[in-house]
């Protein structure tokens, strides 16, 4: 059985490779490609993450950097940002070299640099 450490590294490496090879923009017959900003942030509110992430949040990746859109006002967005970062930590995604971008409906942008460490959670975290 793989250790959690090696499993984490493998997951992050595999996902990173997939993102690296994915196109950055455009659409296909099967929906928008990932990692694009072709639609206003507010449209992501309805996305497939409903029920999976903190309500109303989409995660995107731009040019190798992770970015998060928040279809909320700036006050709510700041609060959700904290929740989202905490959530992503639990997913073991490598955030250490990422620039996090917060975009509100008012197009306010807030850049946050981070050197956060990656938290662990048990595999059955979502058992319920």
């Amino acid at each position: 059985m793989a250790t959690i450490d090696s499993l984490e590294r493998d997951i992050v490496s595999d996902l990173q490779s997939a993102f690296d090879q994915a196109p950055l923009a455009g659409h296909t017959r099967f929906g928008r490609k990932s990692k694009i900003w072709s639609r206003p942030a507010v449209q992501f509110r309805k996305g497939l993450f409903q029920g999976c992430l903190v309500d109303g949040i989409r995660e995107l990746q731009l040019d190798g950097e992770l970015a998060y859109t928040f279809p909320t006002n700036s006050v709510q967005g700041g609060h959700i940002l904290e929740q989202q970062l905490e959530y992503l930590h639990t997913l073991h995604l490598d955030l250490q070299t990422c620039r996090r971008t917060y975009v509100s409906q008012q197009s306010q942008t807030l850049n946050i640099s981070s050197t956060s460490t990656i938290a662990r959670f048990p595999p059955n975290f979502y058992a319920d």
């Binding site: 996902l15 997939a18 497939l48 997913l91 073991h92 059955n124």
Partner: peptide
């Protein structure tokens, strides 16, 4: 799925089934 959503399901399922065989198509 959209790749940005696969990031979640892939992570979630690998952590839930660490001994299962996975293939992420790149």
């Amino acid at each position: 799925d959209l790749l940005d959503t696969i990031a979640l399901s892939y992570t979630f399922l690998r952590l839930n089934f660490p001994d299962a065989r996975f293939m992420l198509v790149h």
